[in-house]
């Protein structure tokens, strides 16, 4: 086997090792590459900034373990902005784990003097996906009689202000896909189309491309895609955290994959040319 063929068939374990190093080294000693804010994230930030102070937001924590590294930092960064604007927050979750993540992230609001039940609430998990979201949109307390902590929702001041989805000044879904939960299409249908509530999305990288169409059509006011968007948002709200820390490792891992792809293709072309020349 000549070198060109070897370059096209490098042992996968070599790649695994290099990938582990590409992530581990910048994690241990950061390179400090810095992150520029992209137009997509700036647009999302500007949209939230343009909302009147003291409004109400409903946030869907629609994700499971495995995607919390993308979506928890996004949630925390945006909660800092909502907290500074005194926007009240109602959290719901279409995945069981989502309610737990919501509980962790919402703690940030206490830094801004928020009081549970009055300024924010974690309603917990709902079963039934889109149809239940539609029922929630018509009458939130009909779906959630109790919140995540076991309180009667009808006794909570924040829920007395919310009679339907229309009472929210914005909706947000932190989403890792529709399998087993409520996806982004469902949120567009039930929040934007049915109740005309402006929606922003925080999604994993996987969902970024397919949801960009909603941003271009104006049905979604902004989209945050993956850890990179979280890092950018952390800069905008001036709260550098997990997102920013991960960007150096993300850089090196992407670079490694691109190098391998280029290497494989270059070897294929050179090998073809060599075979053509020999013939």
């Amino acid at each position: 086997m000549d070198i060109l063929e070897k370059l096209q068939n490098i042992d996968k374990r070599v790649f695994y090792l290099l990938m582990a190093l590409a992530i581990a080294i910048p994690t241990i000693s950061p390179l400090g590459l810095g992150v520029d804010v992209t137009p997509a994230v700036q647009r999302t930030f500007d949209f939230v900034a343009s909302l009147p102070d003291g409004g109400r937001a409903v946030i869907g924590f629609d994700y499971e373990p495995g995607d919390e590294i993308d979506l928890n930092p996004q949630a925390k960064a945006i909660l800092h902005q909502l907290g500074a604007k005194k926007i009240k927050v109602v959290a719901i979750a279409s995945f069981p784990a989502g309610a737990m993540f919501a509980e962790q992230c919402l703690a940030i609001l206490e830094e801004y003097g928020y009081e549970y039940g009055k300024d924010y609430v974690n309603l917990g998990h709902y079963a039934g996906g889109e149809a239940t979201l539609a029922a929630f949109a018509n009458n939130p307390t009909a779906i959630f009689a109790k919140d995540w902590r076991g309180n009667d929702t009808s006794s909570l001041p924040i829920m007395q202000e919310v009679k339907s989805m229309k009472d929210f000044t914005m909706a947000m879904t932190l989403n890792d896909g529709p399998t087993g939960g409520t996806g982004t299409h469902e949120w567009v249908r039930q929040a934007v189309m049915a109740h005309n509530v402006p929606l922003i999305m925080g999604v994993t990288g996987v969902l970024a491309a397919s949801n960009e169409t909603y941003v271009q059509s104006g049905q979604c006011k902004g989209i945050l895609a993956g850890l990179r968007a979280a890092a950018e948002y952390e800069q905008l709200v001036n709260k550098l955290a997990e997102g920013t820390v991960g960007m150096d490792a993300q850089s090196m891992a992407h670079l490694l994959i691109v190098i391998f792809v280029v290497l494989g293709n270059a070897a294929m072309f050179l090998s073809k040319r060599a075979k053509g020349g020999a013939a």
Binding site: M19, A20, I23, A24, T27, G66, D67, E68, I69, D70, T204, G205, V206, A225, G226, L227, R228, E242, V245, G246, A249, Q250, A253, H254, I257
Partner: peptide, 13 residues
């Protein structure tokens, strides 16, 4: 790729 790599970053952190 970005999404999957960030999951690994989370664990490495």
């Amino acid at each position: 790729v970005m999404g999957r790599v960030s999951a690994a970053i989370g664990r490495f952190q």
